[in-house]
Design a protein around this nucleic acid. Sequence first.
DNA 1: AAGCTCGCCAACCGCCCCGTC
DNA 2: TGACGGGGCGGTTGGCGAGCT
Length: 356
Amino acid sequence: MGRQSCCAKQKLRKGLWSPEEDEKLFNHIARYGVGCWSSVPKLAGLQRCGKSCRLRWINYLRPDLKRGMFSQQEEDLILGLHQVLGNRWAQIAAHLPGRTDNEIKNFWNSCLKKKLMKQGIDPNTHKPLSESEVKATNEKNYTDGASLPQSLQMHPHEIAPVSTDNGTVQFAEASKDPMDSKLIYDPFFLLEFQERVNLHGYRSSLMGQCQKTQTIYDHNQFDVKPKIGFSSMPNLTNYDVQGIAETEFSAISASTMSSLIFNELKESSSNNSIVNSSANATLELDKMVEDGGSFSWDAENSFESLFQFNEIKSEENASHWQGQLQALCTDDYISYPLMSVSQDLVGENADTFHPI
DNA sequence: AAGCTCGCCAACCGCCCCGTC
DNA sequence: TGACGGGGCGGTTGGCGAGCT
């Protein structure tokens, strides 16, 4: 008999999280930050175990999460890192800002693994499958039709990635000699590649769980602007830098705005000590209440608690908030109107929550 | 339209590590 | 030094939605 789970022992709630629970957890962490997870449920008024809260926060509520499809670069990076690290999803996730280990693990299991097998590559060893294995795989008749990474669309023994002087990726023909052939995913190349695409100044203590190194970010080369946002429901649109111009601002949620603002801040203050001071962000909810629905945010600290904006439903407002946040670079304090996270949590049409 | 299948992914489970007492 | 608790991690499960019959 295995030991009982913490939830079973305490007869706590399990399963999917309700918007109400999300709200409670989010507000609790917004107020007190991430501390002792075991005490979070009690303090936040949740019938959950601490582990469950931690997981919910890390995988879903964290404001710096990126959502949506994995990009080609991310996909290639995961493949390369997996070749080096194996199923160490947490370590792999550390190289992909805004992605969680769970997300990457799911992506691997549901998608990448199959793609590799379809290409005759053993997903565990990243080496070619034997002929019989390939045949067996093909007989499974994978018909997902998803496009493969460019690198995968070629025979593993015929190409090798080459990093060129100008930093672009090219796949050169590799030696036909099996002893000399280079694996399709050169892990070191990919790590180098990641060096180019990582963000700088991305060091809040929360983000630090995913991203601990400061690296060079060259967005002339790769369009990999950070997409950091609080997207708490799957149906929410992500902040897409490329698409932002065409995006209806009316449809942008608070999370979208927060990510927009995050980006704005990072870009406008890469040399600013405010951005780089990644101590504990303090959301002063007391002050927020006093201010009649706006919260103050100690800009001496980090940006990890950038959420809860008043209804931001126009481009005009968007510009306004960008401006407000840019002012953070010079002000010690700034206040923002408050909105319930519920708009993110339950969507515009839901009436479970209302703007505070 | 109803039933079925399948894939995705959020969340749980259980193990391990580490810090504290 | 061992017990204990908390946190982190990887494997697994099961609910749900989309697509198909």
